[in-house]
């Protein structure tokens, strides 16, 4: 489903030339559960941005569901992000002025769905995350765990083929963090492809495979022997 070949990403900041990714080859099949780990500066965020179609590689090819997205224009990438990818961020990144339900509706709005349909789908997603009773609250009025659940509801509402989670437990206490990881596990068991970027080994253990990055290259790949699988 994801096929990255010799992905290179260079940054030019004035005279300083930085190679963030030095040639990544990675295949991810549908329903896979991947953890991308590595110290900061290893290139894991850059890799996530490219896999999430927020950024384009300097060279190499990236096939997502059989389509080369590495050379697509901004509008086409926006469409891919909208239909194929659900993001879960460490900072939740909910819009502070909108209710949780309105937040969940944002991707549906950009997909061009009508109000009634958006309302139904967002309510379903909130119910699935167990926070339908918080639908009309603003993010500041609910707990961190509930915010992250709302963010996951938003990531799932368009039924994406890939969920990309960037340190999803980083801003949560350990108990709430485990709940969120449980949710990701259950999503994966329902067939959603999940890729988690983390430096937390406990988070990594949940995945089927751990990709260890170092200096922009894949250092090692371990198959996690986790009790969940």
């Amino acid at each position: 489903m994801l096929k990255l070949e010799r992905i290179v990403k260079d940054y030019d900041a004035g005279d300083i030339h930085v190679r963030a990714l030095g040639g990544i080859d990675l295949h991810v099949t549908r329903g896979d559960y991947l953890a991308i780990m590595g110290p900061s500066g290893s290139g894991k965020s850059t890799l996530m941005h490219i896999m999430g179609c927020l950024d384009r590689p300097t060279s190499g090819s990236y096939l997502l569901n059989g389509r080369d997205v590495s050379r697509m224009n901004d509008a086409a990438l926006a469409r891919i992000r909208n239909r194929e990818i659900g993001f879960v961020f460490q900072q939740f990144n909910l819009l502070p002025r909108e209710t949780l339900q309105a937040n969940v509706e944002v991707p549906l709005m950009y997909a061009g769905l009508g109000a009634r349909q958006r309302h139904r789908m967002s309510a379903d997603a909130l119910r699935r995350m167990g926070i339908l009773d918080r639908a009309h609250h603003r993010p500041s009025e609910v707990s961190g765990g509930q915010r992250q659940r709302a963010a996951i509801a938003r990531a799932l509402v368009n039924s994406p083929s890939l969920v990309l989670a960037d340190e999803p437990t980083g801003n949560l206490d350990s108990r709430t963090g485990r709940e969120i990881l449980d949710i990701l596990d259950s999503l994966n068991s329902e067939g959603v492809t999940v890729i988690v970027v983390t430096h937390d080994s406990e988070v990594g253990r949940r995945a089927r495979r751990i990709i260890n990055l170092k200096d922009g290259l894949i250092d090692s790949v371990e198959a996690a022997a986790d009790e969940h699988h």
Binding site: L54, A75, A78, R79, R83
Partner: peptide
């Protein structure tokens, strides 16, 4: 700026 980033990650096109 962050809101703009979030909206783009959720599928907002530049035109939106």
């Amino acid at each position: 700026t962050r809101e703009i980033g979030v909206r783009k990650s959720l599928g907002a096109r530049n035109d939106d």
